[in-house]
Design a protein around this nucleic acid. Structure first.
Lengths: 188, 188
DNA sequence: GTCTATATAAAGATAGAC
DNA sequence: GTCTATCTTTATATAGAC
């Protein structure tokens, strides 16, 4: 261990800050301060600086969200019901972005995709992995592979959008409407 | 006129930059440089500084997108067909964010909603106005008012999300899938 | 109304003692 | 591995000549 504890601590703090505030609004100074680590440590653990931290933060958040999605999706056998649980979970955490599942990576994706190809790819891969989880759930329930893939992408996009609009409007209605319309969208 | 030309020029330049790069990545210096206006002018026309420019840029972009949506939505009587045209229009402009309809205001909305209540409200109102355009189109075509409102919100969220994911993945597939699924989503 | 020079704060990054 | 002091650049913002 040794370094691990301090490194992970920085990464967790950075991940939360990047999610809520975005890449450019989050300064190294703030990461230092909130993580409790000194500025010297940050460049020891992440020698390539801010971009490296962001890259690892995106991968880290991608994995956490993947695990959370997996848990929620397997809680019920019915795909409609489990997808509705995913949306409900977002509604429940709307005002509390201190949890890692707040506004995942849409913000940092839009901020950095035209600036760093590395970061764009990392965000893209996180999105793809979530899409695949939705698709797999549908395949398990008898959907054809191509149709499941299509719906997986559509679902992830719709979630991303409804979350963005709910946060912006400070209102859970967009997410609640999406939840109600899930049965309509999930059709073979 | 007099001031109008210079002022509008700054606003148009700022709107494009905010859309593509976001609020924090866009510096006043860059707005000055690309608009050709001198730094003195920017504080003459926008005495409250960057936040005022961003606020007016969001309102400006909201209006431009509203006008563009209106045009596309009235081109065909059929709501499914005209909504598909809206999506196709986004696909066509994916790689060219120099047009104002590139990645409208999702980025600046996420960046600023937890930082400035003024800006959050401006973004929220732009979203609402677009949702209303979709709803009105559906009401014209015999949808009940409540159902049309619901679908208007869902459509705007889905567009926002599919655009975000398409830009991030550098791939029009998410938007194209959405286009194909519009008939499935638009059900009374 | 236009433009330049400058003030001031904060960013990312580095050096080097411990 | 940890911490501090500091370098350099850039950001927003202002003052004041023209």
């Amino acid at each position: 261990m040794g370094s691990s504890s301090s490194r992970l601590n920085i990464l967790e703090t950075a991940s939360k800050l990047f999610q809520v505030q975005g890449y450019h609004a989050t300064g190294l100074n703030q990461i230092i301060k909130e993580s409790g680590s000194p500025k010297g440590s940050i460049y020891y653990h992440f020698p390539e600086g801010k971009e490296q931290i962001a890259l690892e933060a995106v991968e880290y958040t991608g994995k956490i969200v993947r695990e959370q999605l997996n848990k929620t999706l397997t809680a019920s056998a019915d795909p409609v019901e489990s997808l509705q649980s995913v949306v409900q979970h977002l509604v429940d955490h709307l005002g509390h972005p201190e949890d890692v599942e707040g506004v995942p990576i849409g913000l940092i994706a839009l901020e950095t995709c035209s600036m760093s190809e590395k970061l764009r790819k990392a965000c893209s891969e996180a999105f793809t992995s979530w899409q695949r989880l939705f698709a797999d759930k549908l395949i398990e329930n008898g959907f054809k592979q191509d149709r499941a893939r299509e719906l997986g992408i559509l679902l992830q996009c719709t979630l991303e959008g409804a979350l963005t609009v709910s946060v912006t409007q400070d209102n859970s209605e967009p997410l609640r409407i999406l939840k109600e319309q899930i049965p309509l969208i999930i059709k073979p």
